[in-house]
Design a protein around this nucleic acid. Structure first.
Lengths: 122, 122
DNA sequence: CGGTATCCAAAAAGATACTG
DNA sequence: CAGTATCTTTTTGGATACCG
């Protein structure tokens, strides 16, 4: 694998600005396990507010990653599912997830050491 | 590849909170092409402020992704390089970069269509 | 049920000035 | 050169109330 150049850097940044927020990855990964209704997502993604779930879903929908289907019954039913584009994103994100799982320990150790060294200096 | 579970979701989120900010990926990718001095990075990462570069580098250093070497000459020389942990991150991030490059067009098309549909509704 | 609208607090980021 | 300190602006997220 070669090292990314400038334009791909901008693209990565664009993508990360989208999925790097507080909730998008949680939503995408939840939908990767199957399509869900609004309140199903809300229950599954612990502690997300209704407003943020709405906003996150709209943003993902706008970028063509999530598909929103309204069934105009009473009460209304709204289903969310990944598009094929959204599904294709789960691969790279899962890669990052594996890296995160493998290295979260090392990161936390580094943090402790850094903070300890900083505390010593004071 | 299996679909990530809940704990890995938290780890991904942790990592994304770190590298999903406005500048970290730019810095990591720049350093992936070789170690750099502070102002080299600043010139290469267009439009980053001195303050944000400092903060980003400190955060990356704290998490053990970047190594900071001070040579106490006059004027002082400070070199930044990826640690092996930081270097191992470039793999997954490059994956995401490839996905981003491949799909940024589709995303922008989706955005235009979404925005056009929204404008129609108003 | 699945939202919108409004308001508010906190965090992130930029501009600017100064320093060893 | 490589920062720190301070201030201001912008962005983000949460709480609450209301609606079709």
């Amino acid at each position: 694998m070669h090292v990314p150049d400038q334009p791909s850097c901008r693209a990565v940044n664009d993508v990360l600005s989208r999925i790097g927020d507080k909730w998008s990855v949680r939503v995408v990964m939840s939908l990767a396990r199957g399509s869900k209704r609004f309140n199903e997502l809300r229950r599954e993604i612990d502690s997300i507010s209704q407003r943020m779930l709405t906003r996150t879903l709209r943003a993902l929908e706008r970028d063509g990653l999530v598909d929103r289907t309204v069934t105009p019954t009473v009460p209304p039913r709204v289903d969310y599912a990944l598009t094929s584009l959204g599904a294709s994103l789960t691969g790279p994100v899962a890669m990052l997830g594996e890296w995160a799982m493998d290295n979260i320990g090392a990161i936390e150790t580094a943090r402790s050491q850094f903070d300890a060294a900083e505390a010593d200096a004071c």
